[in-house]
Design a protein around this nucleic acid. Structure first.
Length: 116
DNA sequence: ATACTGACTAGAA
DNA sequence: CTTCTAGCCAGTA
């Protein structure tokens, strides 16, 4: 497993309760060029990794769409988790996306690649 | 080793 | 406005 996977997990773990972020935002914070896809891939392996307490449901795509919901077992699991945190979901999409969006590069200290 | 597949996204057509 | 395309790179067959 590649090292930046851990970085992705760390960032995801720090998303505040009731907030969401996007794959691209995480990729940008980590300095992965166009690496949004890799972020999604890293989260895919989350199911079989030792990291289970990670709030992966707080990561959506740039439009606030719940693109990763198919990985949560039930079709409504991801949306339910988000709703339980006070986020409004309709049609698998975050309605108040702007308000609940949390940008890692604005709330976390600068990422240092050498620490992984 | 080659081919194909994605929890993506920005830009071109 | 809506597709389409390229770039991204680890897994799997």
């Amino acid at each position: 497993m590649k090292s930046y996977y851990y970085a992705v997990y760390e960032v995801t773990r720090r998303i505040p309760h009731g907030k969401v972020t996007s794959y691209g935002a995480i990729a940008k914070y980590l300095g992965l060029k166009s690496g949004a896809r890799m972020v999604g891939y890293a989260l895919t392996t989350l199911n079989q990794s030792p990291f289970h307490g990670i709030p992966a449901h707080r990561v959506v795509n740039r439009n606030g769409l719940l693109t990763g919901k198919v990985h949560f077992g039930s079709p409504t699991r991801m949306a339910d988790l988000l709703r339980s945190e006070g986020i409004t979901i309709e049609n698998d999409q975050v309605l108040n996306f702007q308000e609940v969006f949390w940008d890692p590069s604005e709330h976390l200290p600068p990422f240092i690649p050498t620490e992984y």
